[in-house]
């Protein structure tokens, strides 16, 4: 059966609605995933078991705030641009999605750079564990988001599919990235400011 034949039964407005609703559910699932790390931070910090929340007395892990700010700015910028893409004319989508992708990739690169010069590691007690776990997995999710943005760029560039489905893909990706940006704000406040 040819692709054209079998896909002919799919109505674009239903596909678009699926993408919109699916992206919101996925964003909620993502939020609950990071809720576990949010809870872990607050719980372990409050318990301070063996007085080891921040590590050994003379070795308190302290990640670079400059890296933290740079990552936060990149993620927020990426999310703001991706989300605003839904508000601009379709001709602008390609440029906005490219900008969002570039900023998201920059955030991934900055996180990798920070890990390579962290000055502490996952074995340095509870805070370090939460930092490495939360930041590392956030980067994995951000990489997945980059793939999504890349496919949206591909669709927009080649004008594949119908306009309504492309619009839903742009809007859905922007929404999920916005929720990820919310997660990053929480991470920045807890991991860099509150500690």
């Amino acid at each position: 059966m040819s692709a054209a034949t079998v896909d002919a039964v799919e109505q674009p407005d239903i596909l678009a609605r699926n993408i919109r609703v699916g992206s919101r559910i996925w964003a909620a699932s993502q939020a609950f995933f990071f809720l576990a790390f949010f809870f872990a931070f607050l719980y372990l910090r409050a318990l301070n078991t063996s007085g080891m929340w921040r590590g050994w007395p003379h070795h308190h892990p302290s990640p670079s705030i400059a890296f933290g700010v740079a990552i936060l700015v990149c993620v927020l910028g990426s999310a703001a641009i991706a989300r605003s893409a839904a508000l601009v004319a379709p001709e602008m989508w390609r440029a906005t999605e490219w900008a969002a992708l570039a900023l998201a990739l920059a955030a991934v690169g900055l996180q990798c750079a920070q890990f390579s010069s962290l000055g502490f590691g996952p074995t340095d007690a509870a805070y370090a564990s939460v930092f490495v776990g939360w930041s590392g997995l956030f980067t994995v999710f951000l990489l997945g988001m980059c793939y999504w943005l890349a496919t949206v760029i591909g669709d927009v560039t080649r004008a594949s599919g119908t306009p309504v489905v492309r619009a839903a893909a742009v809007e859905g990706a922007g929404f999920v990235l916005l929720v990820l940006a919310g997660v990053e704000i929480a991470a920045f406040i807890l991991l860099y400011v509150v500690k």
Partner: peptide, 17 residues
């Protein structure tokens, strides 16, 4: 695998978590 201490009480973690 990476020796974090989410659940290791002696290094600041907690099995209650």
């Amino acid at each position: 695998a990476a020796n974090t201490s989410f659940f290791v009480a002696s290094v600041g973690g907690s099995q209650y978590l």
